[in-house]
Nucleic acid binder design. Structure first.
Lengths: 362, 362
DNA sequence: CTGTTAGCGCTTTCAA
DNA sequence: TTGAAAGCGCTAACAG
């Protein structure tokens, strides 16, 4: 009974097909019908089980609406045919995709992977798949990704966007949107408040007798950067420290390395970097110039992206990126469920993690 | 964790809607119709442009079939309404999803992000979106993800799968599949041959006078682990080194840290670790026990996941994960295009990168 | 409880 | 070059 149906339409199958089919049977033990393009449809199952198509549908979505035996019979027929519900068709019909998108500026920046992972896990718990987008720190690209995704996802999470407030707001009207580390009015967000940690860092340096420090800033369109910059400024003023700025526009090891000359030229004895990657670059540059850390110079990073993994281990500000990823997803799902724009902000505070790259001023 | 401020703007939902709509007009100047569920449809554009729905469709998919003015008129109407083609509906109709999935064991393992990024970029070049899956090093989870994705993607890339050959083969029948760092007969794959690099590493240690070394192995289901293990074994035998094994079943900093006692107990003077994360953990553990590196003990990692970023910088084996990601995608797209299972294997060779964690045997 | 009947938004023959 | 119409596979009223 299994194999006959497809042969009836006459055309001799190529021998290649034959081989494939045999293998199929060995591996899965399913009927030939399943070999077709996409797969078995609801109609075939309906016919096989002798019920209406809607009943098959219900067997999967609202089994409680059917008699147990019917469900049983349908499921049996389905598995006999190797039926798998078509996600896409379902989405078209319900308007629910069961997908969310996550867009980050750079997957390879160690700040993001833990966040991505957390988001992925959380989405999975609610049976959502996640699209990942990498904007390469480019607003244009970000905009483009947003557009491409928005047709097939329930909602979007935008992490550390480099896009303008206006464009973000525009997209937020098309799809539920949740922001991470960006504050746009009316849009739900998760903010990692590195300000608190940065303030502690500044205090920490002052305690060690540093009087002249520099903040090595990150991307100009980054909310986090603005926030951190403001925090050092505020704290320095309060503590009477001399503060100057050096800019490393892209957060990377390279950028930090290249910033070292400028940093040293400022006559500072300590630097607070936009992030750990930059800090690590600075450390490398300092080493290359024979400046010892923390003996002659102190460095603090931000985001605790590398953990205690490096030597000397980096004094940094905790990041909470894992919680942020998880929260963003659950916030998004909540918004989706309530179908209302909850203008919520979760703020995660941070603190200084003292390790080995800071010490007494020389 | 200090205090998390949760601030929710508490306007009643109804009045918010009014405000939202007004804002909409300000920001985008679009019609209220666009506010509806998903967005503007082909029919609305058709009406606006005074043409048939099919023409609107053609304006996007086969503009050459239409007169230039008609296309123009349609595009104009479309942008006036803010029309965006519905990816899902299109997929249902054509059977082409325009998506690929990438499944990795652990996004947060620094080996993968560069690969993910490369894959993402390459897919993007051909206008494909990528689903990201994180299996958490769990075969079950991997299987599950495979199932969930397969209904909405063109093809799947499985990086360093922990799944059995049988299950992989089974999935390969349902969807085009490309493997990274796994060798299953009949399935196209990209292999990073760390064997060459590992052999060099062993030679390097022998040159430094080490006679007793240990290989700290990774996940038992990992193809790369088998390959590396075999490579050290082969090289050690050839060089007449004494070799023992310690197992760190999950590749992580933690696992490396915990393996140190066992390593020291073997009486070895050098260790080759499954990957850089593990190596870094070993380094930390050694430091904790006051064993100096490379003075008293040499360590070599694998995958060059951390670059020269750490201090002392890790002697390791190059990884080529970026090329692997890129290749895997282009291989997959090629398979999709030709609709034939090209049983291709790309093999990327590696080499030793000598940095600062290896030295003369004590 | 279950079947019938419309669609979801788009593509794709087939005619005109 | 364009339009009409028939689906893609599934869900969701609305009747029985």
């Amino acid at each position: 009974m299994r194999c006959n149906r497809l042969h009836v339409n006459g055309l001799p199958a190529t021998s290649r097909r034959g081989i494939l089919r045999e293998w199929w049977h060995k591996v899965r033990g399913q009927t030939v019908a399943a070999e077709r393009k996409g797969g078995v449809t609801i109609s075939q199952v309906a016919k096989e089980a002798g019920v209406a198509r809607s009943s098959v549908s219900r067997a999967y979505t609202r089994p409680d609406m059917l008699s147990p035996e019917t469900v049983e019979r349908i499921k049996a027929a389905a598995s006999r045919l190797g039926y798998v519900p078509n996600h896409t068709a379902r989405a078209l019909s319900t308007g629910r995709y069961g997908n969310v998108a996550l867009i980050v500026p750079d997957v390879a920046n160690p700040f993001f992977p833990p966040m991505i992972r957390a988001a992925q896990v959380e989405a999975d718990r609610s049976d959502f798949c996640v699209f990942l987008g990498n904007s390469d720190e480019d607003p244009q690209k970000e905009d483009q990704l947003l557009g491409r995704f928005s047709g097939q996802v329930e909602g979007i999470i935008l992490a550390s966007p480099r896009l303008s407030d206006e464009r973000i707001a525009a997209h937020a009207l098309l799809r539920p949107l949740v922001l991470i580390n960006r504050d746009v009015k009316g849009i739900p967000k998760v903010l990692i408040d590195s300000g608190t940690g940065i303030a502690e860092a500044t205090q920490h340096l002052a305690d060690f007798g540093h009087r002249n420090i520099v903040y090595v800033s990150g991307p100009s369109t980054s909310w986090s950067n603005k926030q951190r910059r403001a925090a050092v400024r505020r704290a320095s003023r309060k503590l009477g420290l001399e503060l100057s700025f050096v800019s490393a526009s892209v957060p990377s090891f390279e950028a930090g390395l290249q910033a070292v000359d400028a940093i040293l030229a400022k006559g500072a004895t300590a630097a607070i970097a936009f992030d750990d990657l930059t800090a690590q670059g600075i450390l490398a540059g300092l080493g290359k110039r024979g400046v010892s850390v923390p003996g002659e110079f102190s460095v603090v990073g931000c985001d605790d992206a590398l953990g205690p993994l490096t030597v000397p281990s980096l004094t940094t500000v905790s990041s909470r990126s894992i919680e942020a990823g998880k929260l963003a997803v659950s916030l998004l799902l909540e918004v989706l469920e309530s179908r209302a724009v909850r203008d919520a902000s979760y703020v995660l505070e941070t603190h200084l993690i003292v390790r080995s790259t800071t010490g007494k001023a020389p």
